[in-house]
Structures are given as structure tokens and as C-alpha cells.
Design a protein around this nucleic acid. Sequence first.
DNA 1: CGGGTTCAGTGATAAAGTCACACAGACCAG
DNA 2: CTGGTCTGTGTGACTTTATCACTGAACCCG
Lengths: 213, 213
Amino acid sequence: MAKHHILDTLTDALRDDVLEGLQVLRFPAGQVLFSAGEHCRGLPLVLSGSIKVQMTGVSGHSIVLYRMGADDICTLSIGCLMTGRGYRAEAISEGEAEAAIIPRGLFDRLMDQSAGFRLGIMESYGRRLDDLMLLVEEVAFHRMDERLEEWLQDRASSGQNVVLITHQELAVELGTAREVVSRLLKELERRGQVRLARGRVELTGLLRTTSLA
Amino acid sequence: MAKHHILDTLTDALRDDVLEGLQVLRFPAGQVLFSAGEHCRGLPLVLSGSIKVQMTGVSGHSIVLYRMGADDICTLSIGCLMTGRGYRAEAISEGEAEAAIIPRGLFDRLMDQSAGFRLGIMESYGRRLDDLMLLVEEVAFHRMDERLEEWLQDRASSGQNVVLITHQELAVELGTAREVVSRLLKELERRGQVRLARGRVELTGLLRTTSLA
DNA sequence: CGGGTTCAGTGATAAAGTCACACAGACCAG
DNA sequence: CTGGTCTGTGTGACTTTATCACTGAACCCG
């Protein structure tokens, strides 16, 4: 049963139509939902799990642009639907994930008939734009050691103090080279802030405080 | 008289309403249209001129995110309208510019009643998202000397081979430090590819070819 | 013309990216 | 359980970029 925040705003009649036209997909961990150049078949609504969106530049390097979680909308797909161009990035599920696909025609109808749906789409777009602007600033001006520590802190705070990830994957998260990550992690280990193992980073020391509020 | 691509798709009745509700503003060169933290009073449609959008990070450094030209829509404002949050970036006119402001209520009505208007908004959003994704890739992975040369080439190709800009402004365009720009430009001058003067860069050599197509 | 302001150049040093390669742990086949 | 293979990690040497501190040149204006 598809449950998504944006469907709550619909009238009962519309929602019934949607629930019929909807196709719910289930993805195992690491599944590629779409990749660069592919064309869009509908608007995915993320129902559960986490999906990372990353792009690979002409340079051959990759960087994670943002993540989508439950109740998110794949903003990127809207652009592809409207302009007919292929995706510029790729999306990969992390852990199990579910998404409902709204086909093109239904999407148009919802945009036409539901102000709430439109609002949801617009908000999603706005948030994504904000995310990317912050990312540009971060990549352009922040020190790599700080970005690494913040990333680990954010990731670890939800649950254990252990993050299962390779240095290469961390490099893609931050948009840098694997060697840089290895060296910075080693330095953190020397300072006693993390413990390292193959494919694993355990946070020990408190690192820096994430929020002062 | 306000003339904007997105108004062409409207029915005559709607367009008449719009032309009444519209407020056309004229900006001299260097005028700040809005700055970070400010709230949005309506959706600007750019009628003529060029407007650059840049943000200043917590680090205190600035970077130009993109430019808007004739027939563009200020996508950033939509997000601010919808969520009520303040702008995260600032917009500055380059040369004379004109914009028409669609007030909030009229915007909602257009979204509700015109599929063409919606399409225009969505396309604009999609393009902006694409721009920012490319910018992230560029900032993260491209060499500064190449980015500088490309920027100069792009800017100069439209018209003269002279660009009137200070090193500091160039640094903001590229999201780097002024000293870096100075050094790279000096190196280009040594190689005979540019001639430098205060606030002025003249392209001489052919630099690298921008398009191989 | 003098004096302040903006712009540009440069050395020293630190941070980050690149290239090349060594080695360690995990895994599999025989 | 052994040897080979793959993936992940560590590190030196070097280049590019960022930062800090300061100098001097060009411009503006009274």
C-alpha cells in the first residue's frame, strides 16, 4: 500500500485514481534506479529507505549530490519528464527501498487538478535547489578534514558509532580522492578520534560538536 | 510593455489580467535585486539584461551560482514564495536590466489555470537544477587554470576579445581566491595568451578551443 | 599635486589532488 | 590449508590550489 505525504493533500476521488495508476517498486540494497543518459518513465515518490543521487563528471570522478528518503520526491525526474532530456545523474538505493512511480499522464493531471500536489512538487524543488547551493559552497570553500568529520558525525549520530563504508565510497561522498580520505582518516586515528578497519570506521572521541544550539 | 516568453502560452483573458497585475522594474548596473535572508514579494520574470546570482558561505567567501537573462524566471524566488523562507543567495544586475514581478496571488492563479505557465516554471526549475549539478562537478573536479580559460573564452566570444573585470570579481565567478586568479592570469600573460591591465583582460592567443563539434 | 583607495603581484607555507606502487585482508579453487 | 586473485588501505613524491602577509602600482578626487 503506497503511503506518501504528498498524496494526503489529494481529494478522495483523485487519490483513488492515483492508487490505481500507481506502480510500486521495491529495490534491494545497491540497486541502480536510473543512470545518466537514461530517460524518465514517470515521477518516483520515495516510500521508504534511502536513495543516493550521484553524478560522474567528464573528469571521471563522482560525487554524491543528495539523498532522498521517505516522503521525498525525485525532483530530478520532473525535469527529465518536462524536457525529455536524459538524466544527468544516477540514483542508487542504500538498503532496501520502495518507490511508487506516477506515470506521465497522471502527473500532468495531478498538477492540473491539485493545488496541494503542486505545492508539494514546488517545495521539493525548492529544497533540492537549496541543498545544491549549499553543496556548491561546501565543496568550494570548506576544508576537507572538517567535511569528513561532519559527514562521519552526521552518519553515526543516527544509531551506532560505527559506519560501514570504504575509503573510496567516502571519497565519492565528499567529492575528493581516495588517498585524501585515507590520509585524513589515519590522522584522526592517530589523534584517537576514530578506530579503523577494512570497510569500517568507528567513532571513538567526541570529534567536534555538531550543533551548538 | 512586458514581454516574456512564458506569457505567450497564456490565453488572451489570462494575459490581460497578468499585464494589469504586473509591476515592471528597471535596474541600473550593479543594483542588488535581493540579498540573503530577505523575503520574497513575488516572482520576477527577467525581461532584459543579465542578472547574476551569487551566494556567500559561512566561510565568508562568495561564488557566482548562475546567471539569468531575458526570458528567464527567477527560480530561486519560487522556493521562497512557497516555503516562506528567506533567500539564501543574492541577485545583482549586470548592466541595465528589467524585470516584471508577478505577485503571489497572481502566481497561484497562473499555476492553477495555465498548463503552459506550469510547464515554463518546471522547465526553468529543471534547467537551474542541471546548472547547479554541473557547477558542483566543475568546482569539485576541474582544474582552476582550465576553468579560468573557459570562463574568459565564453565571456569574450560574445563580441570583443576584451573583458572588463577585476581579479577579485573573477575569483568570485570561479569560487577561488583573488591571488590564485592573479597568478594564473600572469602565467597566461607570460605565454602570450592574454594581455592584462587594471580591471581588464584582453584575449590575444586562441587559448583552447571551446567546442570541437 | 598629494593622499587615500582600490587593484595587482609575489614569497612563504599549508592543504588538497595526482601518480605510482607496496602490502594486507578477504575470498575462492584446487 | 595453500596459493592465487581481487579489493581495500597506506604512503612517498610531486603538483596544484588556498592562505597569509605584505609591497607597490594605478586611479580618484579635493
